[in-house]
């Protein structure tokens, strides 16, 4: 066997490509860098037009202000109280439905599956008014419940899609063997199939966590009082209080993005996989 020749695909000049990519990368990073820079500068520095230069000294007052603000604590807690249960519920229910679609199909189950998956594609505005009326009637407006419930339900399309596709790759023989041994479907799902599906669960956990954490529309519709708001709404609310305190706003944005940034840094592989899988199979 000869050594495989190095594959040159399009450009025989790797240096040129590297330079172009580096320039684009800088351009892409600039916006984020601006927030980072603003968060460590004083308001005076920024309003004098110094936002985009490197700071002379590290100023941590903005972070102190943000982290010491009790409203920010409240927003964070509310966001966690929405994101964690909604992520867990949508994945759990997605696994239950995905198992039926993959291992116990019935007449019309494919149509039902596609119907649920299609839910991923519709603008949420389509169900805004009826949901507002429903939760208003139930007396749940201005609580976190409607946000949790709606995110759990709207997460189902992607969760069902991914769990079903993953379960489909688990050999049927495994299930049959377990049934022969006297296991029921619940035991097959929880003891045999789910332990093999950890990658799919990781993908969904990262996707759902990020989407729900970042969401703006549903808490905007369903909550009203300040102590029920989530962090993304909170940022907008605090704009008044910190109207020209650009540095505080920058620090706030960073703190608010920290959970999703951490998820992104540590689970990037899952995240990208999920985005492409969901997109390509959808």
């Amino acid at each position: 066997m000869a050594e495989p020749l190095p594959v040159t695909r399009f450009n025989p000049w790797p240096t040129t490509i590297f330079t172009i990519l580096s320039a684009l990368a800088v351009l892409f990073l600039l916006p984020t860098l601006g927030v980072l820079l603003s968060s460590i500068k004083t308001t005076r520095e920024i309003s004098m037009g110094e936002l985009w230069s490197l700071p002379a000294s590290l100023f941590l007052g903005n972070f102190a202000e943000v982290l010491g603000n009790p409203a920010v604590h409240r927003y964070f807690l509310n966001t966690l109280l929405v994101t964690l249960p909604a992520t867990a519920v949508s994945i759990t229910l997605g696994a239950l439905a995905g198992y039926v679609f993959a291992k116990l199909p019935f007449r019309g189950s494919n149509a039902l599956f596609l119907g649920i998956v299609a839910g991923m594609f519709f603008p949420p505005q389509v169900i805004l008014v009826p949901l507002f009326r429903l939760f208003n009637g139930l007396g749940l407006i201005d609580t976190l419940w409607p946000v949790i419930i709606v995110h759990s339900a709207l997460g189902l399309p992607i969760c069902v899609l991914m769990m079903r596709n993953f379960f489909a790759t688990v050999p049927n023989a495994l299930r049959e063997a377990a049934i022969m041994e006297g296991a029921n479907e619940w035991q097959v799902l929880t003891r045999v199939v789910l332990p093999l599906s950890l990658p799919a669960l990781a993908v969904l956990a990262t996707l759902q966590f990020t989407w729900i954490w970042n969401d703006f529309l549903w808490p905007l519709i369903f909550t009203q009082s300040d102590n029920k708001r989530t962090i993304m709404i909170g940022i907008v609310n605090l704009k008044g209080q910190y109207s020209v305190a650009w540095g505080v706003q920058g620090a706030l944005s960073l703190v608010a993005s920290l959970p999703t940034l951490l998820v992104f840094l540590f689970f990037q592989r899952f995240f990208i996989k999920g985005m492409t899988m969901g997109a390509v199979k959808g």
């Binding site: 927030v35 603003s38 954490w213 940022i235 650009w246 993005s257 985005m275």
Partner: peptide
Amino acid sequence: FYLPICLSAVIVGQIWTW
């Protein structure tokens, strides 16, 4: 290039407003 995807539209909006 992929990083902006994990940011909230609220944050992206704020960055670009600046």
